[in-house]
Design a protein around this nucleic acid. Structure first.
Lengths: 188, 188
DNA sequence: CCGGAAGTGTCAGTGGCTGTCAATCATTGC
DNA sequence: GCAATGATTGACAGCCACTGACACTTCCGG
């Protein structure tokens, strides 16, 4: 059985436990026992308990970065960022994925510890996207402004995700509206 | 001796240890011993090891919120946010405070664990500032857009802080430049 | 059959953090 | 003065995330 498959099995088991008992209240020992392995082996597949929850986010991040890199060079950065967010909007379209993601989000919001790790990953992701934009813009670019722009775009994404937990289909339009309102004057 | 004074003594002692040995490499036992108290007592003054480092940020946050609340109601939100950041710019002006803050920042960046907690606090602070803006704007306000705007302003602050670690006096102008470039079209 | 490589379990240990309890100290009311 | 009371503390025990070391199995190429 491949490493990925085992990770996926652990993640599914762990998430159901988290939903049932809460993140902090579920020990690594319990997860390992539920999967049928030792605690030590759990840590061979995930470097921390947080990782189990945030692992899926990692892959989504790679997707965003690839999207952004493939946008046409002449396009205003703000629009490229909006298009890079398309995979997220798409996920919200699928009801199965959506309810799963909502569960994950509830787990994250329920634990300050986990929320902190989550924000840390977003931060790293923003750094990656900023570098992608920097490369595209060449030497004449203002690194600070680009960095802030990526942060601003993520703020729109983040803010739009909040109220959309109840209202399924509204995420895309809400993101469009927010990013239109926040569009920087510098984005031609 | 007042609670605040003890906290301050612990914080000073701990920070010097962190600078000398690194955050992760310094145990709470060591800090407690250096201050001359039991580990149990340390946790009566700070709820976690992170807290020691991030405590000062808490008070700065309150300052920002107060500044924002005292801005004239008619002022565009973006400008109010910029003015709310003035205390931060001022801190950068004082060389003593600046070098202290730089040390703190280096400690934070050196530990993923601590960086995560730090970002979590920034998140909470943003929520507070958003609520302040909401109150001011009244019922007609778009909560999502306001939330995103606060996030965007913080992104400017964050981005401006980065390159300014070496170049002392440039923080204020850099922040102005970035916030001018990112100014939302919605901000009249 | 042998070699190592990869995956696993066991065990012991570290460090952050919490609950509990008893001792101490300051405050208050008499 | 003094006793009751409440806050502060230290000592101790314990939980849990996480790590290092080592032994064992399985599987595969030679």
């Amino acid at each position: 059985m491949s490493r990925r498959a085992v990770q996926s099995r652990i993640a599914r088991t762990a998430e159901s436990l988290f939903v049932a008992k809460g993140f902090e209240e579920t020990t690594v020992d319990e997860i390992a026992a539920a999967v049928g392995m030792s605690q030590r082996s759990f840590f061979r597949y995930f470097s921390s308990k947080d990782e189990v929850v945030l692992d899926s986010l990692e892959r989504l991040g790679e997707d965003l970065a690839a999207r952004l890199a493939s946008r046409p060079p002449g396009e205003p950065e703000w629009d490229s960022l909006r298009r890079a967010f398309d995979p997220v909007v798409e996920r919200f379209g699928d009801p199965v994925l959506r309810s799963h993601d909502a569960a994950i989000q509830r787990i994250i919001d329920g634990s300050p510890r986990l929320l902190a790790s989550y924000l840390c990953r977003l931060e790293r992701l923003q750094r990656v996207l900023t570098e992608a934009l920097m490369e595209r813009a060449g030497d004449g670019a203002d690194a600070v402004v680009l960095r802030a722009m990526v942060g601003g775009a993520f703020a729109c994404l983040h803010a739009s995700a909040f109220p959309t937990i109840e209202d399924p289909e509204a995420f895309g339009p809400c993101l469009d509206r927010t990013m239109a309102a926040l569009r920087p004057v510098a984005a031609r």
